[in-house]
Structures are given as structure tokens and as C-alpha cells.
């Protein structure tokens, strides 16, 4: 390629990339349409924290959460629209009210908790755990399920006292 045509090709490439990226709302998709919705959810949610099983919240909670990613527990967790739509669909179809998770029993239909630790089942089963135990070096935080439940990321809390 002659220098002039090289420069032209580079400029064209830069323009192509620059056009969508300058608008914050038009982030390019980070997920492949070929990936399963479950794998996309695990990749994106799991980039920052444990992959919380969809069954731990009702569908309305997931919808509210996915609608508020620009301010997600004090952080911006925005996704491109295509990836966000895939994840919202996966979470709501596998949500606890859809699958009949007994841990959501007692949750008022008008209540839309955003934290799993605000659901009645969680509060019931953790009532004997002290604040000191939660802040211990092993656990650190109420959101760190795996500290005590080895199978938590796979949705298994089997055999755990409750």
C-alpha cells in the first residue's frame, strides 16, 4: 500500500470506530449473540461479584435492578442495550417467584427488594448470625454468600441450616 492510501485507510477505520463510541449511550455490545443467556449473565454480573442465582429475587426486583444499572449500589454498572436485554430476560424467566422459591414466601406483592438480604427468607435463615460474624475476616460482607455456602454460585444452599 502506498503511504497516502495507508493513511486514508487508517483515517476511515478511525472514523468507523469513533462514530458509535463517542455517544455514551451507544456502547458497543460486549456479549456475543452465540453465547447462552446464562453464560452472558455469569460473565457480566460475575465481573464484579458472585453470580447470585436468579431464584433469590422475584422477577419485578430483577426488572428494577436492570433498569437502574447507571447507579448500582453506589457504582455505575451500565451495559450495552443488547447485553442488558439478554440478561434481564434470563433473570426474570428464572426468578424466584416464577420458579416458586419458598424463600420468597412472605414477601408482599407490593414489595420490590433490590437486596437479597432484604428478602424474608434470607432474614429468617440468618437471624442467629451476629454482626461480628458477618464482619469477620472470613465473611467480610453479607453479600459474600460463598464464605459459608460453598455451592452458592451454583444456586445450591442445600444442607445449610435454615
Amino acid at each position: 500500500m502506498k503511504p497516502s492510501s495507508t493513511r486514508l485507510a487508517l483515517a476511515a477505520a478511525a472514523l468507523l470506530i469513533a462514530a458509535p463510541a463517542t455517544a455514551q449511550t451507544a456502547l458497543p455490545p460486549t456479549s456475543s449473540p452465540a453465547a447462552s443467556p446464562q453464560a452472558t449473565t455469569a460473565k457480566e454480573c460475575g465481573a464484579c461479584h458472585m453470580v447470585y442465582p436468579a431464584s433469590l429475587l422475584p422477577a419485578r426486583s430483577w426488572t428494577k435492578l436492570m433498569g437502574g444499572l447507571a447507579s448500582h449500589f453506589g457504582e455505575n454498572a451500565m451495559l450495552d442495550p443488547a447485553t442488558a436485554t439478554t440478561i434481564a430476560a434470563f433473570l426474570t424467566t428464572n426468578a424466584g417467584d416464577v420458579s416458586g422459591n419458598r424463600r420468597l414466601r412472605g414477601l408482599s406483592a407490593s414489595d420490590t427488594p433490590l437486596r437479597i438480604t432484604d428478602t424474608p427468607g434470607w432474614i429468617r435463615s440468618h437471624r442467629k448470625i451476629t454482626a461480628a460474624e458477618f464482619s469477620s475476616a472470613k465473611v467480610k460482607s453479607r453479600s459474600n454468600c460463598v464464605a459459608c455456602h460453598a455451592g452458592a454460585a451454583q444456586g445450591s444452599f442445600e444442607g445449610d441450616e435454615d
Binding site: 470506530i17 463510541a21 455514551q24 456502547l27 458497543p28 455490545p29 460486549t30 447507571a70 453506589g74 457504582e75 455505575n76 454498572a77 451500565m78 451495559l79 450495552d80
Partner: peptide
Amino acid sequence: VMADTEKWFARNCDS
């Protein structure tokens, strides 16, 4: 991967 880099800049610069 440009899409990943752009995603994290968008989030983290805003936070």
C-alpha cells in the same frame, strides 16, 4: 477488546 475497554471506561469514569 475495544467493546470491553469502552464499557469499563464508561462505568469507572462515571463512578
